[in-house]
Design a binder for these strands. Structure first.
Length: 226
DNA sequence: TCGTGATCATCT
DNA sequence: AGATGATCACGA
């Protein structure tokens, strides 16, 4: 008889959310999984996204947020971020999928990406690939809102990248300073509709990711790094 | 199928 | 080692 994942009630204030997140610091993924009544996947390959979903349940994120913030009442997005012991992000951070077909009609101000990055609660998960997922530990969470300079940087990248997509010139992961565009699909064979030289054409679905160099800067500037 | 949650596997 | 392209799990 396998137990079921226990999801907390949503926090009603930002303070409450921050207090809950702070309480996770120092604890292992295994400890939290035990508390919520779930097993940690044995193979790390099959644990992609597991810690993020565990943290969502623990903090009371909306179960079916879909294309919306994890905490709708607070307008906050939760993101776990894998860190090396040195404090460096191990990976880029997935932000959202790209609506390829309407890339030529979107604007930064009303974009999905900007909406999702308005307010982010970063929850570090410390441990390299040599550390079993279960034994990685949560760090100190930090609430982030883009500074005007950061937002300008994101906006410039977004316009460049979306512009290329709209022009039928799909950018590779080499483009972008803070942002990058990478595949976001079940397999390399997946296809979605996007603008092309001669009308709509099928291309690999893409997503926006924040470069590790950018998130490193964010976390370094955070007031919680002690 | 598309969205979320991300990390894996491999190349440079 | 760091970055890029590919992949895994799950829900509506």
């Amino acid at each position: 008889m396998r137990s079921k994942l226990v999801r907390q009630d949503p926090p009603t204030t930002l303070k409450e959310l921050e207090v809950r997140a702070a309480a996770l610091a120092g604890h292992t993924v295994l400890a939290l999984a035990d508390a919520l009544g779930v097993e940690v996947p044995r193979e790390s390959r099959r644990a992609k996204g597991f810690v993020g979903q565990l943290a969502e349940a623990a903090l009371g994120a909306a179960a079916n947020a879909g294309d919306g913030p994890d905490f709708p009442a607070l307008q906050v997005e939760l993101k776990t971020i894998p860190l090396l012991a040195s404090g460096r992000p191990r990976e880029s951070t997935f932000c959202c999928s790209i609506q390829m077909a309407r890339s030529d009609r979107e604007e930064w101000r009303s974009s999905r990406l900007r909406r999702r990055l308005q307010q982010v609660l970063w929850l570090p998960v410390i441990g390299g690939r040599g550390t079993a997922v279960a034994l990685r530990r949560f760090g100190r969470a930090t609430l982030w809102r883009p500074t005007p300079v950061e937002e300008q940087l994101l906006c410039a990248d977004w316009e460049d990248l979306m512009g290329r997509i709209a022009a039928g010139r799909v950018p590779s992961a080499h483009h972008g300073v803070a942002l990058q565009v990478r595949p976001k699909a079940p397999t390399r064979d997946a296809r979605s509709l996007a603008p092309g030289d001669d009308g709509p054409r099928l291309t690999l679905p893409l997503g926006f990711y924040l470069r590790a160099s950018f998130t490193a800067t964010i976390l370094r500037a955070a007031p919680t790094s002690d």
